[in-house]
Write a protein that binds this DNA or RNA. Structure first.
Lengths: 192, 192
DNA sequence: CCCGAATGAGACATCAATGTCTCACCTGCG
DNA sequence: CGCAGGTGAGACATTGATGTCTCATTCGGG
């Protein structure tokens, strides 16, 4: 939430445009520039003033998404303490930017660009390292590959974002339900 | 649904075309008809001979997807026996058609049609009923809503399908890792 | 009050995807 | 062999999205 000064009209902040675009595109990759603009509450002309074209918009979206997730990884301090607790902190941060994560998760095949691939690889490596540490410390199961757990983590975070968008899940519950399901599973404790 | 014999060339079966289309479109919703055709190993002209247009293709895709999932629900006999075991059977059936499920899961906002919405609602209700039964019998946790568990189930099945497509997961392991993660979670048993 | 900056609405050309068509080819069968 | 059905390649017009442009409007600041 940038509280910078806007000299004239109440311009919609660039980041807010990107957020709206991410949430729309994560659901409908075929959304037109006009739909994207209206979802952000601006006109198509203004959208084009911010981003040269669809390609530039998607590039900015990918860049911001990667940056937000990496900032989340930093904030979660995933190299410290109990792996399970680190994972919960990571999920806290990730669900906060679930919209962008859902976009990256579902759309990374489109508009492939080297920096985006590299950024995603960095994120993947860091999350994988955490899960590997958890496995080696005996906290996480050894019969589920870390690669699958990474995929499952992002899938659940993205799903939580969609559930929130669709009103099936309260935003404040997203982090908890993802963490509880990913870590503890769906079975009642007495039943396992 | 004509299951007639093909008298001349080795025609690519309609269902195989739909399967290829589902796997491609679940990843890249913007794929062109030409890309879809080539992913199925046929020409654009032949694709148009099978399906009047993109709309008809997507409709057929949705119809077949819903049908396959409902057949899977039938085969899994989810109303019988231990809910956890029923859920494992359901996941077995669902991962077998993960490509179609991933398509339906990610693309159901596009090309909305009444029969598709109704079909998805039927599936949702049946899976929800199973989870509700599991909760009432004390097998499934009561602190995770059934709506969330339904979303998570489909998200994990779809994710497993993508992981298989991308070569990060062996197809024969898909059912196991989804079921183990969804039911038991990622924590080592001794650690919880 | 007036000016400047940013916006929204709309016109316009361009481009890629789409849907339809024709035609030549191949294969299986009588 | 000759035919018939299915196919691939390609031409063609059409459509919708896109990118660029102009112009009037509006709001904030000096």
């Amino acid at each position: 939430m940038s509280h910078l000064r806007y000299r004239c009209l109440m311009s919609v902040p660039r980041e807010q445009i990107l957020k709206a675009a991410a949430e729309l595109l994560s659901r409908r990759a075929t959304a037109s520039m006009d739909e994207i603009a209206r979802s952000a509450g601006i006109s198509r002309a203004t959208l084009h003033r911010h981003f040269a074209g669809r390609e530039a918009l998607v590039a900015a979206l990918g860049e911001l998404g990667i940056r937000q997730i990496e900032e989340g990884l930093d904030a979660a301090r995933i190299d410290e303490g109990d792996p399970a607790e680190a994972l919960r902190r990571l999920i806290d941060e990730a669900t906060a930017v679930a919209g962008f994560l859902a976009f990256l998760y579902g759309e990374n095949e489109l508009y492939e660009s080297d920096p985006m691939v590299a950024g995603w690889a960095r994120v993947d490596a860091r999350v994988g390292a955490l899960l590997k540490r958890g496995r080696e410390e005996g906290v996480l199961r050894g019969d589920l590959s870390t690669a699958w757990l990474v995929d499952a983590l992002f899938a659940l975070v993205a799903a939580s974002g969609w559930s929130v968008q669709d009103g099936r899940l309260a935003r404040r519950d997203a982090s908890r339900v993802v963490a509880e399901l990913l870590l503890g599973g769906a079975l009642e404790r007495s039943a396992r």
